[in-house]
Design a protein around this nucleic acid. Structure first.
Lengths: 134, 134
DNA sequence: CAAGTGTACTAGATCAACTAATACACTTAT
DNA sequence: ATAAGTGTATTAGTTGATCTAGTACACTTG
């Protein structure tokens, strides 16, 4: 009903699952205090070992995105307070990219132009995709 | 004399080494046709197994950044032709960041502002560092 | 009580990364 | 020619992360 596993993805399964749930939480697809699928049921659905799901849920809880109640289940935490941290994470990544860009002579202006326009020299992106970005 | 290994870095050693050499090549620190340290000497210097250096050099050669001559050594290739490819790589990374940003409501404008200003809310960056960026 | 929940633990399989040792063909300097 | 240094290949073993498998326990709910 939910997630599908991408086997071309080389990240560990538990990380892949955790990041997809994280995205749904941040997007608001999953509301505060909403119950996540049980460890066993999601494991069954994805044909994966329950321990792997358990690990994914553990990392989510460790990051404050969910909370667990023994005997009841795992639930979505309040995502609002986590946005500043996520924002920092993204800026940190951006720092790394800017450093790489500088090495090959890509200026800040060119990066900004790419972000603004988006279209230029990115074969994977189509007009249609562009539209769907809203 | 050259590279130092960062053990806090969780990437594989060979990748870490390769990327540092790659950066030096793209920066122009290493000129075209300049000889790299021999597999054995660099291994000795870094207290690392020669096979690990060998793997780093292999990946560099596979990416077209170096070329090897049996019995003579490994040398820096012409980096000029590789810039477009690297540029694409960076834009691809930028696409990923933009997607993450959109999820948490970070606008393109905010990303652009960060690139332009750079300073805001990045605790690791100091005025001094900013200056050294040239 | 029974079923479903999170959680913990042990055990084994698999794979990538790394170390270790050895070998071969080549080039260069002596 | 010899020796030293080079890239390259091969085999073997270690380690750690990932994943599967099975079991167990305490908890909550109907």
């Amino acid at each position: 009903m939910w997630i599908e596993i991408d086997f071309r993805d080389k990240r560990p399964l538990y990380e892949q699952i955790a990041s997809k749930i994280e995205e749904m939480i941040l997007r608001g697809v999953l509301s505060k205090d909403e119950a996540l699928p049980s460890v066993r049921s999601l494991a069954m659905e994805l044909s994966i070992n329950p321990n792997t799901i358990q690990k994914a849920y553990s990392t989510l809880e460790a990051e404050g995105l969910t909370y667990s109640v023994s005997g009841r289940g795992s639930f979505v935490a309040d995502a609002g307070g986590l946005l500043p941290k996520k924002r920092e994470e993204i800026f940190r990544e951006l720092d790394g990219i800017m450093q790489k860009a500088k090495v090959i002579g890509l200026t800040r202006l060119e990066l900004m132009a790419y972000i603004q326009g988006d279209v230029k020299s990115s074969p994977g992106r189509t007009k249609a995709k562009e539209e769907s970005d809203r």
